[in-house]
Amino acid sequence: MHDTLTAQRPSAASMSAPAIVKPLPAASRFILQGSAAVMAAAAAALALPDTKLACRASAHGERAILWLGPYERLVIGGEAEGAELTRLLAAALVDLPHSLVEVTDRQIAFEVTGPHAAELLNSACPLDLDLSQFPVGMCTRTILAKAEIVLWRTAPETFRLEVWRSFSAYVVGLLEEAGRA
């Protein structure tokens, strides 16, 4: 896969600068499920603020905890620290019923960045991505045309997309096509 999949001008009328889609480096990933106590203990173990608010991520460095549902979080770490994350979480959660499942290889991350990143995503994502409605730090599962994605705004003009592996060619192809304008 090339570094920069597409450099584009999404609409002559309303857009003048590019939005760029590129794959992000490999990461380790886990789905953590359980009660609020589980989430608090997990956040503490990873030295991250607890993600109590719906649809919000807490992140530091390569580590992040994304709220996916009231009892479900996506835990992301560096490519090499999967075993360390497992160890930390297992130790912290030993007395709390929970489910920790590794999904490192289930999905691939992309970044969509640029002044018109939100408009490019809105070619296929039905959410309101205005900064006032989808601020930095907001994350959610949603859809991109016929694929499901996790969308996380990491900066005003930057989004991280977590895409199931077999849908990634479709997602990239779709954004490339929509960006060709």
Binding site: Q33, S99, R106
Partner: peptide, 12 residues
């Protein structure tokens, strides 16, 4: 029930 479900279709 204390049980949770995770799709791992594409993990393996």
């Amino acid at each position: 029930l204390n049980v949770w479900l995770t799709s791992t279709t594409e993990q393996w």
